[in-house]
Design a protein around this nucleic acid. Structure first.
Lengths: 206, 206
DNA sequence: ATTGAAAGTTAGAGCGTTTAACTTTTATAC
DNA sequence: GTATAAAAGTTAAACGCTCTAACTTTCAAT
């Protein structure tokens, strides 16, 4: 017994044991705190307690670390989205508006993560895991819109309507976190705008 | 006369004469072609025919070059916006929708410029010239919405409505150029969506 | 004509990613 | 159990880019 745990400790000293996961966790944290543009592989190494060359035994390059972070981020967003719907009623106007608010909330709470997920990063976005998680996330929106349309006898393609809503909340999130609203309408209440615009985009009267 | 022009030529050999402007032009071109994230000061120097240290006699740092590019870009966008309105009628639904389409068109035609204008670049955005040009650009939208409201007896704050429209077209432009629509709705017709959504967001029936 | 400021130049420091070559552990096969 | 190959680390250094320091050339003003 003693020998085994001793072995494990020694192993930990050189062979980290879970470096891949440790680096992803470190990257996630560092990105949330300082933004992806300031993320240095070397910093993640410091957190994990290994040399700066170690990551390249587990990842192709810096981008592959970011890929892992982005798929994780999408999973988190999907979860928050679902929670918002659950709290306000599946297939209802309120539920759909709450999803929109959750989207913007996510962006406001984790701007660097949001930027990484939706910004200009072709290599990261091309990764299969990322695409899958992204599609899953949007799928939940389509689902809710379809339910709403069925419940309220509304004609129109659910996907098309979902895209319209996505477009709006995405614009709101982006303009918000990049400080563009501030330049033009300081102290703007985005949440209110979303609640007001959602029925308009669903083409129903409140 | 001859002596003067000779002087000018010699002057051009060492003292460039208009390096500041030449660098801005080079930067603008390089950014349009390759994206701001790949823009190297050194490349602009090559185009202008000076050493890599020369720019620092005219600009604080790389960001100050980008500032100049962004204010230029806003001026171009404002112009295109005005042209679109002029072509479809000031203060009309069509005119406003055309502004929206022009916004998205600008993004599609110059994605790197659009990203630089609205992305995460606090130092660049804080520059006074940039802020001014940005506000001027949005001012045109408010103007048109106010006109439309007056002409059509529509209640509601013009600024608020303009922000709603801006939010939508900004989301459309962003999702378009970053390839996010493609992941979910390939071959999506953004322009059509904008024409359909504009009356919804203005809260009028087509 | 002189001379100080403006606008260039060259050289190199500083920083991050990534590769190459080497070392230590781990796991397997006998 | 031990030999040995593969896995997972390490150190050292090359590369590419921004920006500074120190020096030079040209311009403009007296």
């Amino acid at each position: 017994m003693k020998v085994q745990s001793e072995t494990v400790r020694l192993k930990a000293a050189y062979h980290h044991g879970g470096l891949r996961e440790a680096l992803i966790a470190a990257a996630f944290q560092l990105i949330c705190e300082y933004g992806a543009e300031h993320f240095k592989v070397a910093d993640a190494c410091r957190l994990a307690g290994v040399s700066t060359a170690a990551p390249y035994k587990h990842f192709r390059d810096r981008d592959e670390i970011l890929e892992a972070v982005v798929s994780l981020a999408f999973a988190v967003m999907t979860e928050k989205s679902m929670a918002a719907v659950a709290a306000h009623g599946a297939g209802t106007l309120k539920g759909i508006a709450a999803m929109g608010e959750a989207y913007v909330d996510f962006a406001i709470q984790q701007p660097p993560l949001f930027r990484l997920m939706f910004g200009q990063h072709p290599d990261i976005k091309a990764a299969e895991r990322v695409t899958e998680e992204g599609r899953a996330c949007f799928g939940k929106v389509i689902e809710q819109v379809a339910l709403f349309c069925a419940n309220n006898d509304i004609a129109g393609d659910a996907t098309e309507i979902a895209v319209r809503l996505w477009t709006f909340v995405h614009g709101a999130a982006s303009l918000m976190i990049d400080g563009d609203y501030d330049k033009v309408v300081p102290d703007f209440d985005v949440k209110r705008m979303i609640r007001e615009a959602t029925p308009m985009l669903l083409n129903v009267r409140e």
